[in-house]
Design a protein around this nucleic acid. Sequence first.
DNA 1: CGAAAAATATGATTTATATCATATCGATGG
DNA 2: CCATCGATATGATATAAATCATATTTTTCG
Lengths: 240, 240
Amino acid sequence: MATKKNIKVHCSLCGSRHRSLFSDITNTELETLDLHKSCILYKKGQTLYYEGTRPMGLFCINSGKVKVYKITSDGKEQILNLAKAGDFIGYRALISEEFYSASATVIEEGAICYIPKADFLEILNNNPRFFRKMMKKLSDDLGIMEQKLVTIAQKSVRERLAATLLMLKESYGMEGEEESTLIDIALSREDLANIIGTATETVIRLLSEFKNQELISLQGKKILVLDPKGLVKEADFYGI
Amino acid sequence: MATKKNIKVHCSLCGSRHRSLFSDITNTELETLDLHKSCILYKKGQTLYYEGTRPMGLFCINSGKVKVYKITSDGKEQILNLAKAGDFIGYRALISEEFYSASATVIEEGAICYIPKADFLEILNNNPRFFRKMMKKLSDDLGIMEQKLVTIAQKSVRERLAATLLMLKESYGMEGEEESTLIDIALSREDLANIIGTATETVIRLLSEFKNQELISLQGKKILVLDPKGLVKEADFYGI
DNA sequence: CGAAAAATATGATTTATATCATATCGATGG
DNA sequence: CCATCGATATGATATAAATCATATTTTTCG
């Protein structure tokens, strides 16, 4: 493997920062970050961290997409979260002072910054605004995770898939003509199955059915949502 | 319905406080709390708050047990959390500044205090120790919820039931003779089903099987764990 | 206390989804 | 550019668990 090249992505110039948790930290803090952080271009398939290892810092996604997942004792993968530009990952383990409870792997290449633990904690402890924001973020994350739990526990695979497509449309949708929206994230059928907690073949079959119902159209790896209202009807609720 | 009687349970004398998030707030803060809070004896079946309503304060359980749950669009219940003496509930909605995202109902009667939102936020904003503790709590809660999600998404009902019994043993176990431990919480089979996300009949059947395997013994409503190692083998992992 | 209601128990049947199997398509890299 | 490997697709079959049905036991409360 070639040595990873450290690239220069200044926080102050980062296009994603204003949407991130760092949207209103001080200039001094920004400068310290830029001085201490590293930023690397990751390729698809590279892993940022592994479950069970010690967190030494925080990942901040400048571009690209990442999946955060756990592997069960019998080797099955469950995706907990998808992260994109502007998202932080790995803060939960830092705050709970635990080893990572999940792994994170790049699914679409991009530049990802790494902020040393000490700097993150420094800002956390000296910037009450940031502290409050971080707390709110954890609280929001918890609310989302609770909703996911309920969905997976109580809804059929068909409903969960429809709900997941709607969720992906919200996060990764690129508006097209008419009602149609392209879901702009290259998820394999297997990834999709590992989000909703089902078998890959089941996802493939259900996507075919949704296609036959003209709810979606399959553009190679990506999915085009043709009839969001139809999907809402399939999901029979919203939220995952 | 008879008017609820406000009972006197001083925080400073509360036997559960030292185990709670209020374990190290200042005396002044304690006094303010005692002045402003109310404390009511709730009977089984009474609801502390309903999903969709606005949180006006924080519940602090002095005694008794509470289930926190969501109801899906098709009327199914999913229990997210069980709370006992020393536990706080309802803080997530306060911190995220949302309506309640779940309901909370008493399953074993007890005294439950209600701390006005303003007092909670006051302590939160003026006591950095408490703030940090609250943040850690949310982070821990999130880690637990993630593990639950994985378990429900990837494990069989049989494995989930075994894991749940082990979890309940940890939280509510009363050591008996030999390896045996009584799970001291009066959960109906339906509640148990709503924790693991399955049908009531399935729980009843599987409990019968575990009884036949001499892993547990059914003491009326309560369950006696006879062979925890056997249950671990059934669960094939630990954590829910 | 005793009737009614709720919870538990168990059987029969159905069904959604997993698993296994095989074929085709498409991407990747030597 | 072709060979190989992984992803997608679809069919056949197995199975865990839901649902429906009906006793029996336990709890509730008038």
